[in-house]
Design a protein around this nucleic acid. Structure first.
Lengths: 323, 323
DNA sequence: CCATATTATACTCATATTGAGCAAAAGGCG
DNA sequence: CGCCTTTTGCTCAATATGAGTATAATATGG
């Protein structure tokens, strides 16, 4: 069997404070996918160089911050129509996922690439809107039905416990980083169409795209979930959020960015206090007037601080009592 | 060019509270390596199953907790004697590194595998011993010399800043998680023999194995550094340390384990207070008498708590004023 | 059998950090 | 000018953290 290695990229940028990912547009029945290219051992000295190469070739711009996410290689992921026990496939493709952050959503030159709001693929991950509570409750119902459909009572119990942990049900807290766990649970419960495709079985038609999101090609939604989880975790212990911001920004726009990535609201005053203490930003003395209320001072990220201190991330004081 | 995928494992266990890794013993001039096996796309449905398979086959025991670390694929890593610009090699091996944790250092059945103290490969990572201060200062001298040998003054500056950040020099704090940064800096400065091998150049003979550690095959020391960094970080936000402990343990032995992994000492009373608050452990009512002083109560990890709360890790209140 | 060393565990206290909210400042707009 | 909106400054109680001191329970050696 031939083994091939591909590189897939989750390229994130903010558009009006909302996180977007670069997607290759689907055609006909084929859904959207992530930018994906083969790793060519002859020409690419490292994975990262290979990735930068073909992203530039395909989309026409240079990605900035890049980090490796995870390597995906389960059978089934590359051959949606193949049954899991079919070992006769002639080729196996494994894919190394990368996360890339760009400060602005540059216009895409060639190819069929588009910026998509990442909540299009995961509507339930946005806990800010009023709609989200309703979606969450619909998903909870579907997962309850799935739990009840288990054969043994221990299995029923176990399924429901996992659902509660993943989705913050039954008094448990919603943990924003559990993006992948949530997607994998929906996959296991066959509530997302990808699961049906992979296993050649019908999808549970309980939930609509408005609730469980638009599907993606192959296992790309899993890769995107991994990227979201990583980024949501990382902004708390590394100052990576600034890789997504323009040179000058207001504290409110920074907060909007953090809220967009995390999917929940922050306490404004405490966010500022924490940011102040961290020393990451510095006022520029100029002001943004087009905001409606009192003009906001523009700030910049003090990049040079990275060589001064032990860099941690920004703090994210969650606003309680709203959920 | 043929592309092959291998799986390498950093299997960690504690022996008398000191972290050890399973290594394949070197022969003659060939240094120790990590357990390494090919990924066989025909028989292995997932990477993890493949890994478990051949680890069991080679060493005779089942590994417990497993997580993917990173995928390594830079040219040069697989062919130590090849020059970087030599693209004529017939084969490229990329390797997916895994971290595995086992609760006890089981006797190894077959093959030439041995448990090695992980500080054998990274003596400077252990900040507890008195020797470490001396080692650190020797390394600082060597890095200073390397900085001074740069051509431009900006480059000199840049090198020294990086050295200070990585090794906590010049008033900066030592960050225990920067294991990989430290190793890569030593590699770049050609202070470790692996660098010399990879580039076909002579190693700077400044430092001895007692200071920079025993080398490993290929890029295995880089993989080990990645594993140490991951584990040192992870025990703070996930209760993975218990995967290394036996069923019943004393709080002192748990603290020993944490100190061994982190490479520095913790404040005993505060460590206990934090552990108490976390709710991770539960007293068993039985006591360990062979400790020399007052008998210590045995505790167990409350595994069931994982389905109750948002699991974080253990806190690690560093003991200051000793360095 | 008592002093002593050794380790375990309990409690204290000052100082930071956090969550939550109130109030003033500085614009635009009718 | 008064009102709405947003930014910014400040307070206050509740908790968490760093760093000790004190006491308890064992083994050991005279």
């Amino acid at each position: 069997m031939t083994l091939r290695v591909g590189l897939s990229a989750v390229i994130v940028a903010l558009i009006d404070g909302a996180p977007h990912v670069l997607a290759t547009r689907g055609r006909g029945a084929m859904p959207d996918g992530l930018p994906f290219g083969p790793f060519e051992p002859d020409t690419h000295r490292t994975f990262e160089l290979g990735l930068r190469d073909w992203v530039t070739a395909q989309t026409g711009f240079d990605i900035g911050y890049v980090e490796q996410l995870y390597t995906f290689g389960d059978r089934g992921r590359d051959l949606p129509t193949a049954r899991l026990d079919d070992t006769s496939a002639a080729e196996r493709i494994i894919s190394i996922g990368y996360l890339a952050l760009t400060p602005e959503a540059t216009e895409i030159g060639a190819f069929d690439a588009v910026w998509r709001d990442w909540y299009r693929f995961f509507p339930f991950e946005d806990q800010r809107s009023d709609a989200s509570a309703a979606i969450r409750s619909d998903i909870a119902d579907a997962l309850k039905a799935w739990s009840a459909s288990a054969t043994s009572s221990a299995e029923k119990q176990e399924r429901w416990t996992r659902a509660c942990l993943a989705f913050g049900l039954d008094g448990r807290r919603w943990i924003e980083e559990r993006v992948l766990e949530r997607y994998e649970l929906l996959y296991e419960a066959r509530l997302v169409p990808e699961a049906a495709l992979d296993q050649g079985q019908a999808c549970e038609g309980r939930l609509s795209e408005r609730q469980i999101g638009t599907p993606m090609r192959s296992d790309h939604r899993r890769i995107l979930a991994t990227a979201m989880a990583r980024l949501r975790g990382k902004i708390k212990y590394r100052p990576v959020i600034f890789e997504l911001m323009p040179e000058a920004f207001t504290l409110s726009s920074l907060q909007d960015a953090a809220e967009g990535l995390l999917g929940y609201c922050l306490h404004k005053q405490n966010f500022r206090r924490a940011l102040d203490k961290s020393g990451f930003v510095e006022g520029l003395g100029s002001f943004e007037t087009a905001t409606g209320g009192r003009p906001a001072e523009r700030f910049r990220f003090k990049r040079e601080i990275l060589s001064q201190i032990a860099p941690s991330g920004i703090q994210t004081p969650q606003k309680r009592g709203e959920t």
